[in-house]
Design a protein around this nucleic acid. Structure first.
Length: 220
DNA sequence: GCGACAG
DNA sequence: ATCTTGTCGC
């Protein structure tokens, strides 16, 4: 993947790619597995560790994982942070022996100023159904009822760009949005299925742990 | 000008 | 994102 050399170039790339996002799932889409992705950053170096973990949707059991270590070749700019993680994430994905059926990104998809967040970019780049689960919202929303499964619209610029989903009672909701080749209802349903016990889906939890462990091992 | 701003 | 101890709860 080619990393833009300027903010202007990065924005232009997002604007150019955004129209290729598909907001409809494949026919009879019922993934048996889901692959979570996350990246850990080093404190005092440009090193990043990416981890991808494939779990069985029905049980949460880990089936396979892969990692990659690289460098963040782009500064952190809100709205452009995908460019920091994408190259290393794609490299890690290449390490899997079984092709993913569905990607679950750690961040937003259509909930993005140009409707092309990390989850969209990952989806368009790989061609795979993808959605994003973020821990922090962009836009406005009303607090969902305090019941697992409760959901309210996430609105940005007058558009519904995602949903606040309560995966656990008395716990802050997560923010789900479409990445590619999926619809919001399916993404919300899968988010719930993948988070039977904790706030975040098992996919991102596993990927988060593995990326941190990979970064530590790399230092040592 | 000042604060906000996924990870 | 990352820097960090103890503490409450299952």
């Amino acid at each position: 993947m080619k990393v833009p050399s300027s903010v202007e170039e990065a924005v232009a790339l997002q604007v150019a790619l955004a129209p290729s996002v598909v907001t409809t799932p494949p026919p009879d889409f019922a993934p048996r597995t889901a692959t979570g992705l996350d990246v850990a950053y080093a404190t005092d170096s440009p090193l990043v560790a990416a981890a991808v973990v494939t779990v069985e949707v029905a049980t949460g059991e880990v089936l396979e994982s892969a990692t990659a270590v690289g460098e963040a070749g782009f500064p952190y700019v809100p709205g452009l942070f995908a460019f920091r993680e994408l190259p290393t994430l794609l490299e890690a994905l290449g390490g899997l022996s079984v092709a993913p059926e569905l990607l679950v990104a750690d961040g937003h998809g259509l909930c993005h100023p140009r409707r092309f967040g990390l989850a969209c970019h990952l989806g368009v780049e790989t061609g795979l159904p993808t959605f994003g689960v973020a821990k922090t919202p962009i836009g406005e929303y009303e607090a969902p009822a305090d019941t697992r499964g409760a959901r309210t619209p996430l609105v940005d610029g007058g558009e519904e760009v995602g949903a606040a989903v309560r995966t656990q009672p008395r716990v802050k909701p997560v923010f789900v949005s479409v990445g590619h080749r999926i619809d919001l209802d399916t993404a919300c349903a899968l988010s719930l299925t993948l988070a039977p016990r904790f706030r975040l889906p098992e996919t991102t939890r596993q990927a988060d742990h593995l990326s941190r462990r990979t970064l530590r091992n790399h230092a040592a």
